[in-house]
């Protein structure tokens, strides 16, 4: 395994000036990211999630060289981003979901052509990539349209193709599916998986859409209040933050709400009852208990909804992470 991104003890503070009184302005230090450490291996697809203002964009900016870290060290593809920014630019691709990296007035085709020259993509490689992207992202009919006339979804496809045109080792996708319809989202995810498989491109994506994570990423990093609060597989995430599973029982006869140790009956509707229990506990003793008291017609278990898990995680971590965001 080759590590492509190495982040060690990285922190980032901002000085913010606030008006106090008519002329006085006080400087506050705001910590955006604290003691961030992680390693990403070549070919990994990592989801980077967290609530607004948690430090996701700050991290991406440090990984691209836009921002210098206040503390700690980081390298991407063996380069120090803020120092070797232009060299690094050839090895990375960036998609800012909210704003395009394409030229507004240029037809998509010309934007790609210009990028080919700026990134010095060899001709045969450029042709192959263009063919692949046109196929997978269905860009063909859009190539002669100026970027400003494209819809959000079309523009995003263009942006993603643009970010991958020079075969970058690492791609950062900042909210790539924001504002896209269901079909475009699904196509985009297919494309990303395909690219990752074919080229071994390392992908780091930030998103608010947890489906993105579930469908693309094998690994999730959760950041909150500038700290990494979770780094691991999706399944592990379920167990974290006090997630609960739900047992749905259909009794033969309607009955009063069940009272069982280790479970909480959250809903009763005729013969059907919903019991919530910790995600890491086994459902077997619970089922045995119910079968002892009532005749059971049917059973099903619902896994915790990832969205709920994350929500839970955010509220929990907000409670533990003691440093206040403003330190004078």
């Amino acid at each position: 395994m080759v590590s492509v991104i190495k982040v060690e003890g990285v922190g980032r503070d901002f000085t913010v000036r606030k008006k106090v009184g008519r002329l006085r302005r006080n400087a506050f230090v705001v910590t955006a990211v604290t003691d961030l450490s992680f390693v990403v291996q070549r070919g990994e697809m990592v989801g980077y999630i967290g609530p607004n203002g948690a430090g996701k964009s700050t991290t991406i900016k440090m990984l691209t060289g836009i921002l210098v870290p206040s503390t700690g060290e980081l390298t991407v593809a063996g380069l120090t981003p803020s120092v070797e920014r232009t060299e690094l630019a050839r090895k990375i691709g960036v998609v800012f979901g909210q704003r395009t990296t394409l030229w507004w007035d240029l037809p998509l085709r010309d934007s790609f052509e210009l990028l080919r020259r700026i990134y010095r993509v060899p001709d045969p490689r450029f042709r192959t990539n263009m063919r692949t992207f046109s196929d997978l992202l269905d860009l063909g009919p859009l190539l002669d349209t100026p970027v400003r006339q494209l819809s959000l979804g079309q523009r995003m496809r263009g942006d993603i193709a643009a970010a991958l045109l020079h075969d970058p080792e690492v791609v950062y996708l900042d909210e790539p599916t924001i504002g896209l319809d269901v079909v475009s989202k699904s196509n985009l995810r297919d494309f990303l998986r395909e690219t990752n498989r074919e080229r071994g491109t390392t992908v780091l994506l930030t998103t608010h859409d947890l489906d993105d994570i579930e469908q693309i990423c094998s690994r999730v990093m959760v950041i909150d209040h500038g700290r990494l609060v979770y780094d691991g597989g999706l399944t592990g995430l379920h167990q974290l933050g006090g997630a609960r599973r739900t047992l749905v029982v259909d009794l033969v006869e309607p009955a009063a709400a069940l009272e069982l140790p280790g479970a909480e009956t959250v809903r009763v509707e005729g013969p059907r009852q919903w019991l919530s229990f910790p995600a890491d506990a086994s459902a077997a003793p619970l089922i045995a208990d119910i079968a002892e008291r009532h005749e059971v017609a049917d059973l099903s278990i619902r896994e915790p909804d990832i969205e709920a898990v994350i929500k839970q995680l955010y509220t929990n971590t907000s409670a533990w992470s003691s440093p206040p965001p403003f330190v004078e």
């Binding site: 060299e87 630019a89 800012f96 909210q98 704003r99």
Partner: peptide, 14 residues
């Protein structure tokens, strides 16, 4: 202000 300067910073040109 628009944030488009960041886009320039990720291109391999000064």
């Amino acid at each position: 202000r628009m944030g488009t300067f960041d886009v320039m910073l990720v291109r391999p040109v000064s």
